[in-house]
């Protein structure tokens, strides 16, 4: 297990370094300078601004400086938003995104589990077919389409929940719901497939033959084993949620990190793009790393084959 962890950790660091480096050079190879209204700025002021952002140093020097600052958690200053620290935006926006995202994951996982289990137990029946349709629809309809419809029908037409403004807990319900459809679909699909497989196993017959009651058999024996492979979906799922949040936060006007990121892309705020990109990459890679470890912990077969390598 230790060797497996270290190996994965090694990959994680290499990948992260690669992304940061590629991001850095791409941002600096972009034509022009990242200054607003460039023509209107007098040359002296321009020089001064470039100096201030350290853009006059040779590229390798800038790279070393950037990496040094990064290791200390300093992501530089935003170029458009009054020179505020990029890290401040992350500290401000990420909690909102994380709250909406985790709410979606938790809600989606619970519903997906329930749906998948019921479908798997009633294979081939009406409930099963309904669950399959929900799963295919959930995978196919992008979260921003879902968000648009929810915002219009529940928010504007029925006036049940607020659609804009980040004021109270209620503001987070619709965006989380929009994000959770994909989660429900993926989880229920996986759990159903695994459930069908597990139910055919010999140990299920043994459990029934021992005279255990139905709920114990289903929860302790079937569901537990069906859940192991479902853990692998969590990684891609987290990535989907992050991708989805970029758009969902636009639709519902949430002050989350996704909104800042999209804004910075639209305004060519290079330091901001770079900082948030690095943050997102680290987040995604760490989540996938943790999911892999979790999987290794839950399923001993992975641990053993990992150690053999």
């Amino acid at each position: 297990m230790l060797r497996y962890t270290l190996k994965r950790l090694g990959y994680m660091v290499v990948t992260l370094w690669l992304i940061i480096t590629i991001t850095f050079f791409i941002m600096h190879l972009l034509p022009g300078t990242p200054l607003k209204n460039e023509e209107k700025i007098p040359p002296q002021v321009r020089e001064q601004i470039l100096e201030q952002y350290g853009l006059k140093d040779p590229l390798p020097v800038q790279y070393v400086k950037f990496m040094g600052n990064l290791l200390q958690g300093d992501l530089g200053k935003s170029m458009t938003l009054d020179g505020r620290n990029v890290a401040d935006f992350i500290v401000e926006g990420f909690p909102v995104s994380a709250f909406v995202g985790s709410q979606a994951v938790i809600f989606g996982t619970l519903i997906g589990l329930l749906l998948g289990t019921i479908a798997g137990l009633n294979r081939g029946k009406l409930v099963d077919n309904a669950a399959i349709i929900v799963a295919v629809l959930g995978v196919s309809v992008p979260s921003f389409v879902m968000g648009g419809f929810l915002s219009y029908f529940v928010g504007v037409k029925l006036q049940w929940l607020p659609t804009g403004l980040w004021e109270s807990y209620e503001s987070s319900i619709l965006p989380s719901l929009a994000l959770s459809f994909g989660v429900i679909a993926q989880i229920s699909r996986y759990v159903r497939t695994e459930m069908v497989e597990v139910l055919d196993q010999d140990y299920m017959k043994t459990a029934k033959a021992k005279g255990l009651n139905r709920s114990t058999v289903i929860i302790r024996h079937a569901l537990r084993n069906a859940l192991i492979p479902a853990v692998t979906v969590l990684g891609p799922l987290a990535v989907n949620i992050i991708t989805g949040s970029l758009v969902i936060e636009q639709i519902f006007a949430l002050p989350g990190l996704g909104k800042f990121f999209v804004q910075s892309i639209q305004q060519n705020d290079y330091t901001m793009i770079m900082g948030v990109t690095v943050f997102y990459s680290a987040l995604i890679i760490i989540v996938i790393f943790l999911v892999d470890l979790l999987y290794g912990l839950i399923d001993p077969r992975i641990r053993i084959s990992g150690a053999k390598e």
Binding site: Y11, T15, T23, I26, L30, I265, T277
Partner: peptide
């Protein structure tokens, strides 16, 4: 391939389209 696989495609696509 393993390194490529662990780079989030969202990030790569966004960076590419900036260029």
């Amino acid at each position: 391939l393993e390194v490529m696989y662990s780079i989030p495609n969202l990030i790569v696509i966004i960076l590419m389209l900036l260029i």
